[in-house]
């Protein structure tokens, strides 16, 4: 565990034990941690090229909450709860993505074709950004995804990835520079 990570193991462990003993205040506080599961999954989905649709993500969010709750008694306070939950999200996301990879890609029953040029253009731009992000890869793409698609603040990202805050910001900055180059490459590929 990095020494300069803002993390109080005793407090985090007490929170988990509070949930286990059904303490109402702890449940309220832990619910805020669970709120981040949706944002974690959204950022992972963007980071990996959006393999899951909204219905898949909603199902995965429910399943991941249950996995987190089932594993709660194994949390030992070695890492921030946010980081511990993020690792579970990542694992569950990768499992779901692998499982989906083995199935033919299906459109939802209520899917409609894109109806306007504006929507199609928006999707194309969004796809281009995600493709460029995939080119960046690594921890930099992960930080950018958590910041923009997960809407997390830098101190939160620091806890999620268990990386010091200063390092998170530096890697974010470097990642943006690499993303700019990747976007230029995408544009030249499209041309």
């Amino acid at each position: 565990m990095p020494r300069d990570l803002d993390f109080d193991p005793a407090r985090e462990l007490a929170l988990v034990r509070g949930v286990i003993s059904r303490d109402e205040a702890a449940i309220e506080e832990f619910a805020e941690k669970l709120e981040k599961i949706q944002r974690n999954l959204a950022s992972l989905n963007a980071r990996f090229g959006r393999p899951l649709n909204a219905d898949d993500r909603a199902d995965l969010e429910q399943d991941t909450v249950i996995v987190v709750l089932k594993k709660l008694s194994t949390y030992e306070g070695r890492a921030p709860i946010d980081g511990w939950v993020y690792r579970i999200c990542r694992f569950e996301f990768m499992n779901r993505m692998r499982a989906k990879g083995r199935q033919p890609r299906e459109l939802p029953e209520d899917a409609e074709p894109a109806s306007t040029d504006g929507v199609m253009q928006e999707d194309a731009n969004s796809d281009r950004v995600r493709r460029a992000l995939a080119r960046v890869g690594g921890v930099e793409a992960e930080i950018i995804s958590l910041r923009h698609y997960g809407n997390l603040k830098f101190p939160e990202i620091s806890k999620h990835l268990e990386i010091p805050l200063g390092t998170v910001k530096t890697r974010y900055y470097r990642g943006l520079q690499r993303l700019k180059v990747a976007l230029e490459s995408e544009a030249s590929d499209d041309a």
């Binding site: 449940i27 309220e28 832990f30 619910a31 805020e32 669970l34 709120e35 599961i37 949706q38 959204a42 989905n45 963007a46 959006r50 649709n53 909204a54 219905d55 993500r57 909603a58 969010e61 429910q62 909450v65 709750l69 928006e122 999707d123 731009n125 969004s126 950004v129 995600r130 950018i144 923009h148 698609y149 809407n151 943006l176 993303l179 700019k180 976007l183």
Partner: peptide
């Protein structure tokens, strides 16, 4: 570049399904 990321994220958010509050889910 940050603006493009935010636009991409906003397009994803439009696709989100209504969610049960986390406290209720918990």
């Amino acid at each position: 570049v940050q603006g493009e990321l935010d636009e991409s994220a906003a397009a994803d958010e439009e696709d989100e399904r209504p969610r049960e509050p986390a406290a209720d889910l918990l």
